[in-house]
């Protein structure tokens, strides 16, 4: 059984709750009966050695795993009291409310403006698109760098800027939760630092679940940390406890860098 600390949800309802969640690729189990409570307006980090199921777990939380042929999910993910895996749930609606930022920046081959406006456009946004684009780019701390060249191709931006554009694009849909899968792993240290500062700002309005293989990063930016090992949740609790005083031997071995 995993060691799970009391999670202080700050008096609010949890943003997301996984219950006995298992994921199979064919007959292979990638995630084993994980239960996890995500408090609202917090940053939760998922850490663990490569292949332990972090991305798989993350992708289950907004039903991105539906797109992987051969993936099968058991268990529940509760979002505002509704199980996202109920048969009457439309994954398209889920992903509007629970957005995702990927490991490699993946802007569309369109202008900076059109990238940001893409989500609102397909979701039938009625209102002032220009100001929504500006607001989203500001939230992603990109506005000052691009405000005078919104019609340039997104590919004219640096990797770090592209990733912030992808974050802006996600924010423009106004999700409640943002999932990030190693969002800085393809970036240089300075770009990484900007993303980390940005995440710190964003948790005021959003709940963020971030996968990272960088332990210092998890320690710096997250409030809670979940350590996964071979598809199982080993330990989940306040980041400080996980890093300074883990109760599980495997957690300690991992956070002190003895394996992984």
């Amino acid at each position: 059984m995993p060691t799970i600390y009391d999670i202080d949800t700050g008096g609010k309802a949890p943003a997301l709750e996984a219950r006995d969640l298992s994921v199979f690729y064919g007959s292979k189990v990638a995630v084993k009966e994980i239960s996890l409570t995500i408090p609202a307006n917090r940053v939760v980090a998922l850490i663990g050695p490569s292949g332990c199921g972090k991305s798989t777990l993350l992708r289950c939380l907004n039903r991105m795993n539906d797109l992987v042929s051969g993936a099968r999910v058991e268990g529940e993910v509760a979002f505002r009291g509704k199980n996202l895996y109920d048969t009457d749930v439309d994954p398209v609606e889920v992903r509007r409310r629970i957005g995702m930022v990927f490991q490699k920046p993946n802007p569309f081959p369109k202008s900076i403006y059109e990238n940001t406006a893409f989500g609102p456009r397909i979701n039938g946004f009625r209102g002032d698109l220009d100001s929504l684009v500006e607001q989203s780019l500001r939230q992603a701390a990109l506005w000052d760098e691009v405000h005078d060249r919104l019609s340039d191709s997104a590919y004219a931006l640096s990797g770090g800027q592209q990733q912030r554009l992808c974050i802006a694009r996600t924010l423009a849909v106004k999700p409640e939760i943002v999932l990030m899968d190693e969002p800085a792993s393809a970036l240089d240290p300075i770009a990484t630092q900007r993303i980390e500062e940005l995440i710190y700002e964003l948790k005021k309005e959003y709940t963020i679940i971030i996968v990272t293989h960088n332990m210092q990063q998890a320690a710096r930016i997250s409030d809670y940390t979940a350590f996964l090992y071979m598809g199982e949740l080993i330990e989940y609790g306040p980041t400080e406890s996980i890093f300074t005083n883990p109760r599980e031997e495997r957690t300690e071995a991992y956070v002190t860098g003895r394996f992984g």
């Binding site: 991105m64 694009r169 996600t170």
Partner: peptide
């Protein structure tokens, strides 16, 4: 994937 992640059909 990026587009699906934004709620595209």
């Amino acid at each position: 994937e990026g587009a699906y992640g934004l709620g595209a059909t």
